[in-house]
């Protein structure tokens, strides 16, 4: 019988060496929109060729195999501690076998830390569910796009952003203006509003697990997502920041309750290589 640790190594391999179908389709659609003489078109052709090569040769799409972010749903009877140990062991194995880049750097001596030590990496978020299966979602989030994320607190006078939907809109547009093409567009952009600071950053990351054709349950936020996507794509930053029609594939917005004094807007970016995958273990 396949062991869970091997299953998680396989999940690492799949996520590092392939692109989810929704993202690959979005990249293909982008190619159709760009002028074949443009630099963005040239970049997209190479990006699509790279996806094909990575899958065929079983090698990481991007040399930055990122920060691994796990979202684990536990059935009753399984213990977090046990699953965490297995994930840490799988991470060590995956660094050798996939291979992944050793991205876990000690702040003091500047060298990679053994990944089977509990060092806060990978990030593992646990929740429980009613079903009998264990569900392990993994995202490999590149640091280029991680660095692009930013948080706003409203009101923000410099953006003339008040505590309303227009204020949120101004923040997200500003975040894209600030980052330009540095974080490997076309982006998937997740926006979390409300809460305390730690809650909005956690939520915006979590939203990046959503497929890009997901429809927002709130019609108001769904409309804001569409407005923002049109805003962002009018900026003409384009694939790899080389100018072009598509700067983002999707804007995903989530909202939480807030304290009367606080109104945070957190913006998380995923690069075009929005690598995520799921393992269902029954």
């Amino acid at each position: 019988m396949l062991k869970l640790v091997d299953g998680i190594v396989e999940l690492y391999k799949k996520v590092a060496t392939s692109i989810p179908p929704d993202i690959e389709e979005a990249l293909r659609n982008t190619l159709k929109l760009e002028n074949p003489d443009s630099n963005a078109y040239k970049a997209l052709e190479i990006i699509l060729e790279n996806i094909k090569l990575a899958r065929k040769e079983g090698r990481p799409i991007c040399q930055d195999t990122g920060i691994p972010i796990f979202s684990v749903k536990l059935p009753s009877g399984l213990v977090q501690r046990d699953i965490k140990e297995i994930i840490l062991e799988a991470t060590t194995l995956a660094i050798k076998k996939v291979p992944l880049r050793a991205n876990n750097i000690d702040i003091i001596n500047d060298l990679p830390i053994d990944s089977d030590k509990d060092s806060g990496m990978p990030i593992i978020n646990f929740s429980e569910h009613e079903r009998q299966s264990l569900i392990v979602d993994l995202m490999l989030k590149g640091a280029g796009c991680e660095n692009a994320g930013r948080m706003y607190k409203l009101p923000d006078m410099s953006l003339n952003a008040q505590r309303d939907l227009d204020g949120i809109r101004r923040c997200v547009i500003d975040a894209v203006i600030q980052i330009q093409g540095k974080a490997c567009p076309p982006y998937t952009i997740a926006v979390a509003v409300g809460g305390s600071r730690d809650q909005v950053t956690a939520l915006s990351k979590k939203l990046l697990f959503n497929k890009i054709n997901t429809i927002n349950p709130s019609p108001t936020l769904a409309k804001l997502e569409e407005t923002l996507l049109a805003d962002i794509n009018s900026l003409n930053i384009g694939t790899a920041g080389l100018s072009g029609a598509v700067t983002a594939f999707k804007v995903i917005i989530g909202a939480q309750k807030r304290h009367p004094a606080s109104f945070f807007v957190d913006v998380s970016f995923a690069c075009w290589a929005n690598r995520r995958g799921r393992l269902i273990w029954s």
Partner: peptide, 13 residues
């Protein structure tokens, strides 16, 4: 010179 972001395998080849 800007090369192609995320094209890890293509460029290593």
């Amino acid at each position: 010179l800007q090369t192609i972001s995320g094209a890890g395998v293509y460029l290593s080849n």
